[in-house]
Amino acid sequence: MIPARPCWYLFGASMLLGGCTSDVQSVMNPSSLQAVQIVEVAWFLFGFGTFVLVLVIVTLLLAIRGPLRIRQALARESTVIWLGIAFPAVTLTVLLVYGVWVMRSNLNLPHGGSPVSIEVVGEQWWWRVLYHAPAGPQIASANEIRIPVGSPVTLNLKAADVIHSFWVPSIGGKVDMIPGRTTQLQLTVDRPGVYRGQCAEYCGGAHALMAMDVIAMSSSDYAAWLERAATVPATPETDIGLHGRSIFLAAGCGACHTVRGTAAAGSLGPDLTHIGARRSVGIKTLPLTRENLMRFIVDGQHVKPGNLMPEFRVLQPQQLEALASYLLSLKAAD
């Protein structure tokens, strides 16, 4: 699955980005067929650009202080035609054909078979993720997209309010999410791992914080996860959990959030059915811990300014504690 990468490009990468390279969200660290293709284009372009820039600078230096013969040759109008028209005409034709050829091979990448199709909706400022399983309930999640490796995945991208752009650099280029339209992104990720992405089209307010993780897993792990995710979390067994659930329902959380198997069926905010199994709270702004969860509930406007959730400062500390316990307990039984 992983194409052999020419070693000059690894060498070049370390030269160029050496010392300050970061792989957290890098274009140059590809993990899907699509992203690998683009990185090859990128290195080709960097080589081309460097060559032409050097050519211009050398010609300029020769024009300023070069030997007389060279300067006389450079001063001719025909030189302008050769270097300014003929040379770009040839090189740009090559570039254009190469670019189009890459687009064609991108279109020809496998996306038939039994494609996994996931809907991602950009909202101010989080990602709603919907898995349409052939059978069973629709599984909703937020800010975490689980996909299988090695097989083509189709992401159907929508926007609920303003324009967003879906971008996870390590696994592919970005595609805009536009109200009223559905756009698509085809991916074939070749290595399991967690890939960070974030919104690339300015969407107001907390655009900077609108991040997400794509979690690529082996197809058997993925199938197992999908099965677990379809289940309804068990009723809390502890008192504190039960207390938390009653607070959750009484405080009106259900007006915006869904927890399958309870009366909470709101759809304005993220589905919390399995929030206990997620990695973060408040779209990637905080890792999912008890403290962070409580902080988001009472102080969300500082964590993610402008988000739609009111701050529940009325909750007493022990109520908050119980609520957090309940939420953390929301996951599929192993």
Binding site: I38, Y98, G99, S165, G173, K174
Partner: peptide
């Protein structure tokens, strides 16, 4: 240099990454 990076972002696949 700006013109050359302009040619780069004119290449559609590269722009999918570089855009915005």
């Amino acid at each position: 240099l700006g013109g050359l990076t302009g040619v780069m972002v004119a290449m559609v696949p590269f722009d999918w990454q570089a855009h915005d």
